[in-house]
Amino acid sequence: MPSEQIPKAIRLEEFYRRLTATPPASDFESAFKLIESTLNEVEDELTEIPFDPSQWQVDGRLYPPQADAETALPDWPSVRRFRVRRHHTNIAANGAIEIATVTGSIEWSKPGNDGKGVWET
């Protein structure tokens, strides 16, 4: 496995920092793309490991949620959830985002551009 150079934890902090600094998203599509583009940019800049989403086994690089990893969330029709290993990425129709562990600890969150959080929509 190629060298990670900058540790994963540092790159993840940079990902969250950039997401925080970006204006809030207004809908699901823009929020999903924001997560995808921000993480891919951080990884392209801070690791020498090339982007290879077909490599589903850990390769040292961090990957954004993918469409085929959407899980069912029947009690919250305005929220869509995506699973990556031990994390859920919850995105609401108003563009609010929440990244939490599967045990419920929230790692990062941001309201949509209407000021409401994921579970307030």
Partner: peptide, 28 residues
């Protein structure tokens, strides 16, 4: 332990303390 199943590829298995957002499964 966490199990990931991709119907066309197989099973991913992880049981490590290091689980940062965005990582794939440790073993397939």
């Amino acid at each position: 332990a966490t199990v990931e199943w991709r119907p066309s590829l197989g099973f991913g298995v992880s049981s490590s303390d290091d689980s940062v957002f965005g990582q794939g499964s440790d073993e397939v």
